[in-house]
């Protein structure tokens, strides 16, 4: 059960992504915006010779505020052959999950409820496990 998670902060809350899905954590320098796309797609950034689609996790969750990140840290994930950079406010260490993701009575609140696979116990306390497939597809946005 002790799964490894990448701990990060999204919209001021503790969140986690399965570490196996994360290829690396990068600091984004330049983003080329793509006009005509939903606002959670910030644009493209280049990692070596590959283009990554930059996703603002906060906006993708359907929250109203954009991700404010001094270091522009992002987790690089590959979903269905496409590379994404998930922009988070802060990316911390990789930690262990002490429990399976569980639902909490009353839910996690708007946006979070749809994106979260559940709450896991970690060293840093309860953390929401984020479903990155949901995040990048924009399905959350439409639902919001």
């Amino acid at each position: 059960m002790n799964e490894l998670l990448l701990m990060c902060t999204i919209a001021g809350r503790r969140a986690a992504i399965h570490a196996v899905q994360v290829q690396s954590v990068i600091e984004i320098e330049n983003i080329t915006p793509i006009p005509g796309t939903p606002d959670f797609i910030l644009g493209l950034t280049a990692l070596r010779s590959q283009a990554l689609t930059v996703i603002d996790c906060s906006l993708a969750l359907g929250l109203d505020m954009a991700c404010e990140s001094a270091e522009q840290r992002a987790a690089v994930v590959e979903i269905e052959g496409h590379l994404y950079a998930l922009l988070v406010e802060e990316a911390h260490d990789v930690g262990e999950a002490h429990s399976a993701p569980v639902e909490v009575p009353g839910g996690f609140g708007d946006g979070w409820q749809r994106a979260a696979r559940g709450m896991v116990e970690t060293d840093g306390g309860p953390t929401l496990l984020v479903d990155i497939e949901q995040l990048v597809s924009g399905g959350l946005r439409e639902a919001a």
């Binding site: 793509i34 006009p35 797609i41 689609t53 496409h82």
Partner: peptide, 14 residues
């Protein structure tokens, strides 16, 4: 040319 993410494809612009 490299493929782009489905969410960008959905715009049908690129």
């Amino acid at each position: 040319v490299k493929p782009i993410a489905p969410a960008i494809m959905d715009t049908r612009l690129y």
